[in-house]
Amino acid sequence: MSNTSNTITRRALAAVAMAGLATLNVGAASAQEFPSQPITLVVGFPPGGSTDVVARILAEHMTGTLGQPVVVENRPGAGGTVGIAHVAASDPDGYTLGVSGVGASILVAAMGRDTGYDFDAELDVVGVMGTLGLVIAGRNGLEATTLPELIATAAADPEALSYGSSGVGTPGHLAMEYLLDEAGVEMLHIPYQGNTPLMNDVLGGHVDVALLTTPGAAEQVRAGGIVAYAVSSPERSPLMPEIPTVAEGGFDGYSATLWNLLVTPEGTPDDVQAALSEALNAAQQDATVLEAFASAGLAPTLTSPAEATQFLEDERALWSGVIEQLGIAE
């Protein structure tokens, strides 16, 4: 049953392509037929992580809009690239989608490492699944209470401070190096494997400064376990509105955000992409989803597939620029 309607969709599309007719009618008709079977949403991180939770919240709502289950499938590994490599190799029929973060979309490739796919050639961007800032936080007992003071400490003694990130070439590492480079100071980089051990060590006072994701950091700040100096996003975080942005701290124009893109294999029909984009945007306007986004510190981001592609281009220009400026690519 599902196979039949699928074939019809493809035939209809082929006919349209051959006739060179990009009529709205046919597009709308096949959009109504999509989806006719469950959709798989591939997440490149293990279940329970922040990316996974975002994906599940959105998948839950998109299931309602699309009328077919959107099932999250975890294919964790190598900064999310294992999952995206799987999506890139799937059929471009809109039934295999991926959640692609900063690392899988830009950083891993920009650092000169093999991802197993060529993002632009093998994937289409359908939409943005929310954006999130990083928190620059310090252990209790550091003398500095503001970002300028922290920078001054590092300027006075290049061996005074160490900072932890969730890994080499992760947004936290690059965002901090970018900041240190702008400020012209040095701190010792200590890479961790993810946010969890990093949080452990900054709470325990083993590392001085850490770049942490917003919701977890906000909770620790509220409990008094760490001190927040600044957020890396261009706007203040609704979870900790009293903490200034890095830009406000004297680094005009500084911006580093985390985000996830909804991607499909290259060649996914436009009408299918439009249907998915609509469902994604509808989810990011739903009250329940917005509430969940707020508690996760996520800003909803509504885009068309074209706007999302442009968003990726802008972000790539920013991050590649940072990597180039720092001279850390291989």
């Binding site: 279940p47 329970g48 599940r56 969890t196 949080m199 977890g216 909770e219 620790q220 409990a223 996760a296």
Partner: peptide, 24 residues
């Protein structure tokens, strides 16, 4: 709010789905 293993992360994920951010 520090999960020691992959399984523990899922437990925290179950809380995060409900908008509860695990922490001290």
């Amino acid at each position: 709010g520090i999960p020691g293993s992959a399984t523990m992360s899922i437990m925290l994920g179950a809380l995060m789905i409900h908008g509860i951010t695990p922490g001290p």
